[in-house]
């Protein structure tokens, strides 16, 4: 099916379409563009099916990735929202300020992804019901500050690895890829800060991930760091590369590793009712 014909059909169904978008070429470009999300959010959802057919696999894949990301953002947003609302959990001052900042970012990611999915003709998945105690494994997650920070680190490091694992699927859609990267690095900033907050509480962690070290998290969380011990990149051994003094710890810290969707879902499943 000719993609340009799709736009013709939209224009027939919605004469204002061409007025909202600057030209046909731009309309095609903006269809999956976050830049055009405001205009596109106004496109009736019934058109989504037709557009999805026209764009075929690539849009289906992109929407799947976005809904997967949305699920993870729901998890984080709800987690921090409940934490900030839990009286006495987070010390006043800098800690509350930092967690509030992170909560606001996660809520913004949820809103952004929902708008983007709707703009691309998709339907955002519903927010799951969460159990942040993971069936009792973290029973005091909202009453013990250290447990809360440990789970926060688990979520942030998982989030970083999860987005990284989806990048290749978005390679043909520059706008979505760039937006995903822009979320990905924010999650990494969060991870760095949460790790510093844990260190301030006495945990033996650094802002970056050393090997597959759990940083004091329970052994049950090992899947979160599985594979982080990789020290070979692009077929090149990083340890002492080109005669430089690069230790195994340095080599693993210098690169964060991806997780597949299956790996991530296995990690978060205990937190979903």
């Amino acid at each position: 099916m000719n993609l340009y014909n799709v736009v013709d059909q939209i224009e027939k169904l919605d004469p204002d379409m061409s007025g909202r978008l600057d030209g046909r070429r731009a309309a095609l470009k903006q269809f999956t563009s976050f830049a055009g999300k405001v205009a596109l959010a106004a496109v009736p959802l019934s058109l989504g099916g037709m557009l999805k057919k026209a764009y075929g696999q690539s849009v289906t894949t992109v929407l799947d990735v976005l809904n997967y990301a949305l699920t993870l953002e729901y998890l984080e947003a709800e987690f921090y929202t409940q934490a900030v609302a839990s009286a006495g959990l987070i010390p006043a001052g800098a800690p509350t300020g930092a967690i509030t900042t992170i909560r606001d970012h996660e809520n913004a990611h949820v809103a952004f992804l929902r708008t983007a999915i709707q703009g691309a003709g998709g339907t955002p998945v519903n927010k799951p019901n969460f159990d942040f105690t993971a069936g009792g494994a973290f029973a005091n997650v909202f009453s013990n500050y250290d447990t809360f920070l440990a789970v926060a680190q688990a979520f942030e490091d998982t989030g970083v690895r999860a987005y990284k694992g989806q990048a290749a699927k978005l390679i043909s859609n520059n706008d979505v890829l760039t937006a995903a990267l822009n979320i990905h690095s924010v999650e990494a900033r969060h991870a760095s800060h949460i790790r510093q907050m844990r260190r301030a509480r006495g945990a033996a962690v650094k802002p970056w991930i050393t090997g597959k070290d759990l940083g004091g998290l329970p052994a049950a969380t090992a899947a979160i760091y599985a594979g982080e011990e990789n020290a070979t990149q692009a077929g090149v051994e990083i340890t002492n590369i080109n005669g430089m003094s690069i230790s195994m710890d340095d080599a693993t810290e210098a690169f964060d590793e991806p997780l597949t969707e299956q790996q991530v879902l296995a990690i978060v499943r205990p937190f979903i009712r």
């Binding site: 990048a167 690095s185 999650e187 760095s192 210098a254 690169f255 991806p258």
Partner: peptide
Amino acid sequence: LLLAGKIVSVEARHAAL
């Protein structure tokens, strides 16, 4: 692209620190 992704999150960890 994956290689760049592996590096950028470490740069972001540095930036945050």
